[in-house]
């Protein structure tokens, strides 16, 4: 399962790669990283069919995660083959943000700091469903 992680913090890559090192090694997950909303859209433009799940930070300079979500839902809603799942991650884990994200079509909403154990559960669950 291919997962695109969008965050302006570069170290997120290292963190994800270590947190999911077993899954990466086993080939269960493949991760791609984008450091801004714009970069994420570029990546999706080339790899839309591969990406199953997008994990995006909301607060980023330039295009915010919510704008990215709007673009994704606008551009990739009529799928080949299925639209990607989008999970929003934010430091501001209040209900208003959650509501806004869900209205814009987010599949899930996670608050920072990310509980990686829980995230892993969700991802494995998704994988199981996909299969």
């Amino acid at each position: 399962m291919k997962i695109l992680v969008v965050d302006d913090e570069q170290d997120v890559r290292t963190l994800f790669e270590q947190r999911f090192r077993r899954e990466i090694r086993s080939g269960a997950f493949t991760f791609s990283f984008a450091y801004s909303g714009e970069e994420a859209l570029d990546y999706l433009h080339d790899h839309s069919s591969e990406v199953v799940l997008i994990l995006s930070d909301i607060n980023m300079p330039g295009m915010s995660g919510l704008e990215l979500l709007r673009h994704i839902r606008h551009q990739y809603n009529s799928p080949p083959p299925t639209p990607p799942q989008v999970m929003m991650i934010t430091a501001y884990g209040d209900e208003a943000s959650r509501q806004q994200a869900l209205e814009l079509g987010a599949n899930d909403f996670l608050a920072k700091p990310v509980d990686f154990a829980a995230l892993k559960e969700k991802l494995l669950h998704l994988t199981a469903h996909e299969n």
Partner: peptide, 11 residues
Amino acid sequence: RAKDKTFNATL
């Protein structure tokens, strides 16, 4: 941004 969560700007 903390005050207005919808706000975003390019820096």
